[in-house]
Write a protein that binds this DNA or RNA. Structure first.
Lengths: 172, 172
DNA sequence: TGGAAACATTTTAGGCTTAAAGCAATTCGG
DNA sequence: CCGAATTGCTTTAAGCCTAAAATGTTTCCA
């Protein structure tokens, strides 16, 4: 609650609330901290993937999506899951097909649709990377207690829901 | 704690711990959720900046750093603060000088150093954007209570410290 | 004082990313 | 059935981003 001295400035001569630019510095600080954490961890993971396996993070992410879908995915699916643009996926897939990690074929039932899968090579390489990747993440979060982890999960779920609601509000 | 039946598998014949790939699925899920939240909010802010002010997020971020430093910053300072590469800043600054938002000059005392500042135009435009930006962030986090915000700040601070420690460990 | 090391920045090469426009295939409503 | 919207994907233009090498400057110290 604002101090009385501050409140006074927020009331006009007839004691009604005045249009005051509200203070949202706390939310702003929270956003910057969230961004810092993500950037820090993402950069660390990116570097380790490059040094250890000579692979980029986007390629790894795409392979991770496909590893969970043995029957393959369409490019649209991938695009939604990874929250990146369609065109981005096109190029990423192109390079991964080129390097032999992905198999791409046109759907038999809908000729607009491209279905992509991990090749044997792609799956083998991904599994190798995924094991170390999980250990890196565990190490990066090592100082958090199981309770911290649960609590963060809960609060981030709430954050995600809030942001999605806000985004939907704007789109109307 | 693992169930007894699981523990049995983790002990060898002489009752010593066996090398077992530990389960860090929870940390992995936490990392993915953290990334999702950030990507979601970042994308929303990026789109709003573009539609409302026709400015990119990296340009806005750079101007935000400079707004806090009336005496200017060196490119290295900016690079560290924004957690991006040096070369990235060079190009970003180039475009912002070109558009008249930034002023760049070589330091008098050290000819290696470039000092950049917001121009009058740059500062005016930034202030205009910053006001709306703060409101967007407040709206995106609107469903979090003040207590949620405090708790998230605390846990993210702990996360950041943990990740920095892990990164430092690796660099040794 | 004369290099060697450290530092600040730029350049380079390659890849990532987006928004928007374009193209083909499918679906839907009259 | 047929045209209009929708869908899935690719292309385009521009900008972002990184790692590593290159360039010029300063500092350190033997």
């Amino acid at each position: 609650m604002p101090a009385v001295s501050d409140c006074i400035e927020m009331l006009d001569s007839e004691t009604k609330a005045v249009e005051t630019p509200e203070d949202h510095a706390e939310e702003l600080r929270l956003w910057l901290r969230l961004l810092t954490c993500t950037t820090l961890i993402e950069g660390e993971v990116r570097g380790r993937l490059r040094h250890r396996f000579d692979v980029t993070l986007p390629r790894f992410d795409l392979m991770a999506q496909l590893d969970k879908a043995p029957d393959g995915m369409t490019l649209s699916d991938v695009s939604k899951r990874m929250m990146v643009s369609n065109g981005n996926v096109t190029g990423l897939v192109e390079r991964l097909v080129e390097s032999g990690h992905l198999d791409r074929r046109t759907s038999e039932t809908d000729r607009r649709v491209q279905v992509i899968r991990l090749t044997k090579l792609g799956r083998a390489e991904f599994r190798k990377m995924a094991g170390e990747h999980e250990a890196w993440i565990a190490d990066l979060f090592a100082d958090l207690t199981p309770k911290d982890v649960r609590e963060l999960m809960r609060l981030l779920a709430k954050t995600k829901a809030s942001a999605q609601k806000s985004a939907a509000r704007r789109r109307t």
